[in-house]
Write a protein that binds this DNA or RNA. Structure first.
Lengths: 205, 205
DNA sequence: AAATTATTATGATCACGCTCACTTTACTTT
DNA sequence: AAAGTAAAGTGAGCGTGATCATAATAATTT
């Protein structure tokens, strides 16, 4: 078993597909690692040759989900007239991708969403870094110059706070979360205007 | 076994003391429920007559800890000249109380810290409500009128974001967290000044 | 093609949090 | 004081996530 670079990739893919389906059907807690292994047609122990923990599987699924729907290509984001609107679109798009994982967000907060989550597989920037890069690019585009580290940290703090809220939001269509996103971004952009290093006036389009 | 209202309370106290010690000595994960039961001199199953889950024990310990050191009595809070200073003192005091539980904060975010955590034992207001009441009182005292639900929700969002950061803050004395608290409160109070319903000017002292 | 080496796969096994059918105890009723 | 009742205690046992010694397989060397 050595050529198996491809074989391994295929097995990993089977695990991910099985996990995605089972999590979606029965939920995270109700799905056992044995279930996943059986569905992926491997032994129970083999699963842990591919992922160190069960949680790592969700983290991977969540990361892939947001990575696939990159905000860069979202037309709503591109069409936004103001930074606030653009950020709102980015966050809304992110929440949409994360929706299937809403319930286990608290678990992800310790790993992929934490302020110091590094990208373990070396490739594929961490969830956080990718998101912040998108935010920084939008800020630049809308004439807010380069965001300071402090600004990015403040943004991320608000964002994680929103995620915690969202994870527990029981309103029918999570409309409470969207309202909170609105208020949060309003506060953040207001702060930005007062603290921007360079020209805070929106650029001409 | 019926008089045992007192007996029961005593047993619960023994469990809490044992858990507090073991958690402090060996950490949350390394402490098993069997360890706690043995230290409290009860059978392993009995423990679950008192607390539904292991996590409920930490939640209780954390709740007691912040309840004991109520911010109302903190002289630093009372002496603060501005709302920002007062809130900073409140948050710093809260973090000090929560310090032993810093590592398992993510777990608590689902329960006691979530935006809809109700107080299960009916008595002893939830962590969140107690904190927000203190914040509201300080805002009123410093001339910001009565805070809107939106303002409180924004505050709590920032606060939970800070807690997530803090839980993963590896800087030596967690000074990074304090800097973040400072920036966050600055942003929040700035927002408040622009959105306060009543006189935003600080009251005379 | 046989022997060797490097990977991957396996499933019995572990310790854990938690459950539950049952026992023990403390009090009440007769 | 004997019988009855309800609260509290017990520990074997369950299913879980994770581990690890071992087996199986594929490539490399001889």
């Amino acid at each position: 078993m050595r050529v198996t670079a491809q074989t391994k990739a295929a097995t990993e893919e089977r695990i991910l597909r099985a996990a995605r389906r089972l999590f979606a059907d029965n939920g995270y807690e109700a799905t056992t690692t044995r279930d996943i292994a059986k569905a992926a047609e491997i032994a129970s122990g083999t699963l842990f040759n591919y992922f160190p923990t069960k949680e790592a599987i969700v983290a991977r699924l969540a990361g892939d989900a947001v990575g696939d729907s990159l905000a860069d290509r979202d037309p709503t984001v591109q069409a936004a007239a103001s930074l606030e609107e653009a950020l709102f679109a980015v966050v809304a798009s992110g929440l949409r991708s994360l929706k299937p994982f809403r319930r286990h967000l608290p678990a992800l907060l310790e790993t992929s969403l934490s302020p110091l989550a590094m990208t373990p597989p070396d490739e594929s920037r961490s969830l956080r870094v990718g998101h912040l890069e998108a935010v920084a690019a939008l800020a630049a585009r809308h004439g807010y110059g380069e965001l300071s580290p402090t600004a990015l940290q403040l943004y991320w703090t608000l964002y994680t706070g929103v995620l915690v809220f969202w994870a527990n939001d029981k309103s029918s269509k999570q409309e409470d979360t969207l309202a909170l996103v609105d208020d949060s971004l309003n506060m953040f952009v207001g702060w930005l205007r007062e603290h921007a290093q360079t020209d805070p006036a929106p650029r001409k389009r």
